[in-house]
Each structure stands twice: as C-alpha cells, then as structure tokens.
C-alpha cells in the first residue's frame, strides 16, 4: 500500500452508506433502542434475583449495573462486525458495488477504509442510542459517559477491521457462521461481559486478556461508572494495535480477493 493510495476520497463512499442508512433510519434506530431493553429486562428482572450483587474492582454492584456497560461494548462489536462481514459482502459480491467504484478515481484502499469507518460509525450511532437508554436508568455518570462515543468509534475500528479481513477470505456468505459462532460468540460470553473475569480460573483470566472485547468492556465500565480492573492505557493500546493490525490485514486480503 502506497501512501498516495489513501486520500479523503474515502469520504464519498462513507457518505453513500450514510445515505442508504438514512433511508430506513427508523428501522436502524429501533434495534439499538429495543435490544438493550430486552437484556435489561431479562437480566434485571429475571436473573438478578438469583445472582444478587457482583463484586467488581473491589466494589459491590447490582448485577444489572454490572452488565449495563457490557451491553454498550457488545453492541459496538456486533454493529461493526456485522456491517463489514454480511453487509460489505453483499455490496462486494452480490451488488458489485466495489467493481463500479474501482472504475472511478477511487482506490481499493479508499473503498475498504470507507467500509470499515462506516462500520465504526454504525457502532457509534448504536452506542449513542444505547447510552441514552442506559442513562434513563441512571447507569451512566456524566460527563465522562460521553466518552462512550469516541470509544465506540475505536471499538468499531477494531471489529470492523477484523470483519473486513474475514470478508476478504470467506469463500461464501454462509461461511461467516464460522467467525460468528466460533469467535464472536465466545468473545461475547467470556470477556467480562456477564460475569467478572476474576471469577474465571487463572488460565481463563489470561485468555480473556487476549480478547479485544474484554478491553473494550473494561474501558466502557471506566467511562460510564469510573471503575475498571485492567490498566486503561494498556487496554487502549491493545485495542489501537489490534485495529491497525487487522486494518492492514484486511486491505491485503481484499486486494488479493478483488484485484485480478
């Protein structure tokens, strides 16, 4: 990848996705609005009576308060990852949108960057809506909680880049089941989302450190309630490095896939 291959021309491609998003914005808003309510209802009403309080970073928290930031972080992951896998694949493979773009002055790097940044934008939009829901329950402390928005962008770049890498190598759309069920689902369950990582055995705790979602959940807890168990700088650096690594990997895999 040459430096001249990536310019701000990626913005019109990003805007194209925004135009499509705005056409059905009500549907696009409904999911992040209602989904956290389902979780809060199921866990808050159903499960928390069984579980009681959770000890996190040396403090006792109600269970629902513990999982509320995790709902934000997992939504950041799902929105970006879904966008750059299924949605990007449809545009690339079925709609031939990228083929049309690559006959204009756009470079492959610009098209792929726009898709990933768009995925991160969707994470940001979803996080903003969920933050509103969580705030209504009083589970977010302001003004720090506003940092969820830029954090969602970073989280979106992490999972958007990883998703785009899979789009570059997947033989067919059905094969996305593999990364979804074998990577995203375990991340969703074991990254300190629904129970503190400290309740895992030592090897499990080490393994959780590798999970980008673990660091994202930790940082989300820090900005919404001022507490976390990991080191904030370490978590931030890990996420940034992860995003950069997969960004370049995704460009490579898409170049190999598209340019013949």
């Amino acid at each position: 990848m040459k430096r001249s291959d990536l310019t701000f021309l990626f913005l019109p491609v990003w805007k194209r996705n925004l135009i499509v998003y705005r056409r059905i914005w009500k549907v696009n808003f409904m999911v992040p609005l209602l989904e956290p309510l389902f979780y809060l209802a199921a866990f808050g009403i159903g499960l928390s009576g069984l579980i009681g309080d959770v000890v996190y970073a040396g403090q006792e928290l109600s269970y629902i308060r513990f999982i509320a930031p995790a709902l934000l972080a997992t939504a950041m992951m799902f929105n970006a990852f879904f966008e750059t896998t299924y949605a990007s694949f449809v545009r690339m493979y079925y709609q031939k949108t990228f083929d049309a773009m690559l006959a204009t002055p756009l470079s492959l790097e610009e098209v792929i960057t726009a898709e990933i940044v768009w995925g991160a934008t969707k994470s940001m939009l979803a996080a903003a809506i969920i933050l509103g829901v969580i705030s209504a329950f009083g589970y977010a402390a302001y003004p720090w909680a506003l940092l969820v928005i830029p954090l969602a962008f970073l989280g979106g770049m992490v999972f958007g880049s990883a998703g785009m890498f899979f789009t570059g190598i997947t033989p067919s759309i059905d094969m996305f089941n593999l990364p979804f069920f074998l990577l995203v689902t375990p991340l969703f369950l074991f990254s300190g989302t629904f129970f503190p990582v400290s309740s895992l055995p030592a090897w499990g705790q080490y393994l959780a450190q590798v999970s980008p979602l673990y660091h994202l959940v930790e940082l989300t807890r820090l900005v919404t309630m001022g507490r976390m168990e990991s080191d904030p700088l370490l978590s931030l650096s890990y996420l940034a490095l992860f995003a950069v690594f997969f960004y370049f990997l995704s460009i490579r895999s898409m170049r190999k896939r598209l340019i013949k």
Binding site: L9, P12, V13, K15, R16, I19, V20, R23, Q95, K96, T97, D99, A100, M101, T104, P105, L106
Partner: peptide, 22 residues
C-alpha cells in the same frame, strides 16, 4: 455486468457517483 447501486434511486446513482469524482 449491471453494477448499478440497488440501494439507491436512479437519480441518487448518478449523484453519488459524481461524488467519487469530487
């Protein structure tokens, strides 16, 4: 192949494409 953008209208197809040429 037909590489028109099915997510956009006829007019938007042209307008959005014009954006790729700045």
């Amino acid at each position: 192949e037909n590489t028109l953008d099915p997510d956009l209208t006829v007019e938007q197809n042209l307008l959005v494409f014009a954006g790729y040429y700045r």
